[in-house]
Design a protein around this nucleic acid. Structure first.
Lengths: 118, 118
DNA sequence: TTGACATATGTCTATATGAGTATATGATCC
DNA sequence: GGATCATATACTCATATAGACATATGTCAA
């Protein structure tokens, strides 16, 4: 079996850095394709293809206005990524250091008193 | 050009759901390969290959003990993912609703007063 | 040393990709 | 209608995959 399609979910869609860049630009507001082409310095067909992937996973939405197509961000599909990665935050964040220390102390006490009841 | 290698960075490594599963199991603590094979119900060579990818991006580390290899989690490479996706949290979190409203008001006032100075 | 166990690696296949280039679609303006 | 602009699609290529399977490597035990 090959790798899962980029359009499978946000995890796969966003693994490509160009697509993250596109979302970063769109975070500032709605943009026509040509703006993205200019800002990212990519070939226009390439941008259109990346936008298609992003559309398919729901990360962007389109609105037609004359001959332009205005793309806008929809961050909702990113939530699962956030939810998953959040659980690993303690791996790097100092915010959890104190909490971890407290938990370690508790565990120590628990083990010291082990075997007293049952 | 093909898709970026899965070993390019954490974004690509973690796009594969099996690899996320492996990390989830390892989050509970160090585990030998066979434990992962049993818990995930995957073929052993497949698990070894996924572990290799995870090793190459630094998401797991190995320790040899007899004939076993004990893998443990290292969440640090996930930080860039967290940092990137965090900026989109307002897209789905209600926590930012009030803040957004305030900002919108500010912007409105700003536009109302536009053109007065310079 | 023979064998069982734990893990890694090699080979094969089907498949999807990102990028480049050319072209199609569709709207606007003259 | 014809020209031009904005965007999407089609076709090509080189490449890397996930999984299945067979096998190699290395460790321990009898």
């Amino acid at each position: 079996m090959a790798r899962a399609a980029t359009t499978t979910d946000a995890f796969n869609a966003v693994a490509e850095p160009r697509r993250r860049q596109i979302l970063d630009v769109l975070a500032a507001g709605e943009r026509p394709v040509n703006d993205l082409v200019a800002q990212l310095g990519l070939a226009q067909p390439l941008v259109s293809k990346h936008l298609r992937v992003l559309r398919q996973v729901g990360l962007v939405e389109v609105r037609e206005e004359g001959r332009q197509r205005l793309y806008r961000l929809n961050g909702h599909p990113l939530k699962p990524i956030h939810d998953w990665v959040k659980n690993y935050e303690r791996s790097w964040s100092q915010r959890f250091d104190r909490l971890d220390a407290v938990l370690a102390e508790l565990k120590e006490k628990e083990q010291a008193g082990e075997g007293r009841n049952e």
